[in-house]
Design a protein around this nucleic acid. Structure first.
Length: 507
RNA sequence: CGGGGUGUGGCGCAGCCCGGUUAGCGCACCUGCCUUGGGAGCAGGGGGUCGGAAGUUCAAAUCUUCUCGCCCCGACCA
């Protein structure tokens, strides 16, 4: 079968990557901009992906001893005030509630009324409000550790927004833990980063680089911040999850104190960690192609879509009966402990249109079944991961028997493909001229896909970091755990360096 | 907050400079026929107080003033 001449997306990745990203979201019906500036409506297909992510992550959190709870959306202004760096980091992007009532004015317009004595801040993150509770709950070393997660929405008043990647309101989970010792808190920070790494790689099929953030990219108020960084198809980095070791900073701010075994009063050690709906953006940009969304089976809202083909009622009955049999067989199976979701699209629209609709939505397996298949006991199946979207006619039994294996293979292939891409676009760069060349687009007006993950030496000074950022918009994504100690010279100033870091452009 | 742009059925646009029939086109939508294994075709149909307010005029989508929204570029960011 010939390759498609035309792609389903009006623009390709090569043409205009940012535009392509928006088209994929639109075509797959993941989300849309709402009337509220900077906020998005997550549509059912997109939200189901999020639910699938939530389920997997939530299980991992439970497996590592955490439980869920819920804390208020509103934070008293004074709470936010308690930690100096935290204030500085978040103050300029906080939404503030100043009134608690609406009244009709003379013109019949609703106006805010009932001014609050103390304004309330809508949480940009919850360290302070959760800390206030923890301060009450913790008295003795016997009360520790506290291992709590919350699924919530947060608001950060951003200047410029992009669907899923940066919106004013977004959904996330934030884990907040309290420990008696520094070592235990440090361990927790790393443990949860690893949970994120495993999730990204095994469930989302996105390879990531674990590492520590530099001082300039650190969470406001944290002692150290760690991240997983993923490479998108335009070779830019996307921070996909973060874990923070907060030391005793927030414990001091919120007065989380306990009496130790030795009877001494001590401040506790805290951590926090989170991933957000941004991961959906990562998913899109890591796997999708010029025909739309491509989803790893483990988070796809549906694994299989069946398009029945018939001309009249009699054929319809034959085909639908055949499909019923397949549904029964599929219902018996599980893919990673989850029911296999099979959708039959029997809408009365043209076959071609229907066909493309599901390609754009990224369903892993698309099956067409017509009278000829019923006769021959076959089905026609197209794997979304196949670049040519080739139709394969196989026996029904073969399809049923190999279903889980097929999905597993697709999941693995997606990871391998993304991993090769990451490897092929990660270079060791030691010379600034070369560094500059690779990070400079040929077309400054509308930059083409360029750049890479550069493994380069860095002296550790934020001056060099800032200078590179200023000149090339390239930053240190993180300092990977896997980088070995090795002597070298800073890519920018030539000063001494003992380790390579990952430089890249980022979202 | 600085610089630029733009508002006309659900979406994308034309018309505006030079006021004048019933404001048009493509896509989408609805109905019928026909089709259905790679994005159909034909016929008919519904939907707009032209972002808002004031003004000029016999007459305003079109001219004037004010106002609001949105988009892009810069400083900030998971």
């Amino acid at each position: 079968m010939a390759e498609y001449k035309k792609t389903a997306m009006p623009v390709t990745r090569e043409d205009d990557y940012p535009q392509w990203y928006l088209e994929v979201i639109k075509a797959a019906e993941l989300a849309e901009n709402s009337d509220v500036r900077g906020c998005m409506v997550i549509k059912p297909w997109g939200y189901t992906i999020w639910e699938n992510m939530q389920r997997e992550l939530d299980q991992s959190f439970k497996d590592t001893g955490h439980t869920n709870a819920y804390f208020p959306l509103f934070i008293p202004l004074e709470y936010l005030q308690q930690e100096a760096d935290h204030v500085e980091g978040f103050a300029k992007e906080c939404a503030v509630v100043t009134h608690h009532r609406l009244s009709l004015n003379g013109d019949g317009k609703l106006v805010p009324d009932g001014k609050l004595e103390e304004p309330l801040v809508i949480r940009p993150t919850s360290e302070t409000i959760i800390g206030a509770s923890y301060a009450k709950w913790v008295n003795s070393y016997r009360d520790l550790p506290i291992l709590i997660n919350q699924w919530a929405n947060v608001v950060r008043w951003e200047m410029r927004t992009r669907l899923f990647l940066r919106t004013t309101e977004f959904l996330w989970q934030e884990g907040h833990t309290v420990h008696a010792t520094k070592a235990e808190a440090t361990e927790e920070t790393h443990k949860m980063l690893y949970v994120y790494k495993e999730f990204a790689e095994n469930v989302l099929a996105i390879p990531v680089i674990q590492g520590e953030k530099t001082e300039s990219e650190r969470f406001p108020g944290a002692v150290s911040t760690y991240s997983i960084e993923a490479m998108m198809q335009d070779k830019k980095a996307l921070q996909s999850g973060t874990s923070h070791f907060l030391g005793q900073n927030f414990a001091k701010a919120s007065k989380i104190k306990f009496q130790s075994k030795e009877g001494k009063e001590e401040f506790a050690w805290t951590t926090s960690w989170g991933v957000s709906t941004r991961l959906i953006g990562a998913l899109i940009m890591a796997h999708s192609d010029d025909n739309g969304l491509v989803l790893p089976p483990r988070v796809a809202p549906a694994h299989i879509v069946i398009l029945p083909i018939y001309k009249d009622d009699s054929e319809r009955e034959t085909v639908m009966n055949y499909i019923e049999d397949i549904k029964l067989e599929v219902a018996k199976q599980r893919f990673f402990e989850r029911k296999i979701v099979l959708h039959v699209d029997d809408r009365d629209i043209r076959g071609g249109e229907k066909n493309w609709y599901w390609i754009k939505k990224g369903v892993p397996l698309k099956i067409e079944i017509g009278p000829r298949d019923v006769e021959k006991n076959t089905i026609s199946v197209v794997k979304r991961t196949d670049p040519g979207l080739k139709k394969n006619f196989i026996l029904k039994e073969e399809f049923i028997n190999c279903l889980v294996e097929t999905l597993t293979n697709m999941q693995n292939e997606m990871y391998e493909k993304a991993n090769s891409f990451l490897k092929e676009n990660t270079y060791e760069i030691n010379d600034y001229a070369e560094f500059k060349k690779i990070f400079t687009p040929k077309n400054e007006e509308k930059p083409e896909i360029h750049g890479c993950f550069a493994r380069s030496h860095w002296c550790g000074s934020s001056k060099c970091e800032d200078a590179i950022k200023e000149e090339l918009k390239v930053t240190v994504r993180n300092i990977p755990f896997t980088e070995k100690q090795c002597e070298g010279n800073c890519i920018y100033c030539g000063g001494k360096s003992s380790k390579r870091v990952i430089f890249a452009k980022s979202y």
